[in-house]
Amino acid sequence: MKPCQSCQAVIDEYILDKQLEALRDLTVDDFYVCADCTTIVADACVECGGGVYVPRSESDTPDYCPACRSDLISQTGQDPGWNCDAVST
């Protein structure tokens, strides 16, 4: 079991997996935060219309879900970042 990178609590994989149902092809192994330190915003991804993962410490909702961001990196070789208007380097 891995500790949450935010609060250091042990990650309850069952609870987090239930929250991640809105994100395609992702499991608890793709995250290092517990269910208490994250939230999922359904239908927010501009590419697939799926859910996005938002750490509770953040106030902005990302435009891309982790799966679409990964797909874009694979296709273009560039990281689009989490938001459409900014390209990370």
Results as ranks from 00 to 15, higher is better:
84 C>Q: 15
69 R>Y: 02
49 G>A: 15
60 D>T: 08
53 Y>H: 15
84 C>T: 15
55 P>H: 03
76 T>G: 12
37 C>S: 10
47 E>M: 15
20 L>Q: 00
59 S>M: 11
60 D>W: 08
20 L>E: 00
41 V>P: 00
59 S>A: 15
89 T>D: 14
17 D>P: 00
15 I>N: 00
88 S>R: 07
69 R>P: 08
31 F>T: 09
73 I>T: 13
38 T>V: 03
48 C>Y: 07
1 M>D: 06
61 T>F: 08
54 V>R: 04
66 P>I: 08
85 D>Y: 11
55 P>R: 01
9 A>Y: 03
4 C>D: 05
75 Q>P: 05
69 R>W: 01
88 S>E: 13
15 I>G: 00
13 E>M: 05
60 D>G: 02
9 A>C: 07
25 D>I: 00
32 Y>P: 09
63 D>P: 02
31 F>A: 10
31 F>K: 06
7 C>H: 11
22 A>L: 08
74 S>W: 10
85 D>L: 05
18 K>S: 12
16 L>T: 12
35 A>Q: 14
74 S>P: 11
72 L>A: 12
1 M>R: 08
47 E>P: 08
62 P>D: 04
39 T>F: 00
22 A>I: 03
71 D>I: 09
42 A>P: 07
44 A>P: 07
61 T>D: 14
87 V>M: 11
5 Q>T: 08
27 T>I: 08
10 V>K: 10
42 A>Q: 07
7 C>E: 10
87 V>N: 09
4 C>W: 02
61 T>P: 10
5 Q>M: 11
20 L>H: 01
66 P>F: 02
4 C>F: 05
15 I>R: 10
76 T>W: 15
43 D>C: 13
14 Y>K: 14
88 S>P: 08
41 V>C: 01
60 D>H: 08
14 Y>H: 14
3 P>D: 13
77 G>C: 11
75 Q>S: 15
51 G>Y: 01
17 D>F: 02
10 V>T: 12
59 S>K: 10
74 S>E: 14
39 T>P: 00
63 D>A: 01
7 C>I: 14
82 W>A: 09
52 V>P: 04
15 I>P: 00
31 F>E: 11
27 T>G: 13
81 G>E: 00
41 V>K: 03
56 R>W: 12
29 D>H: 06
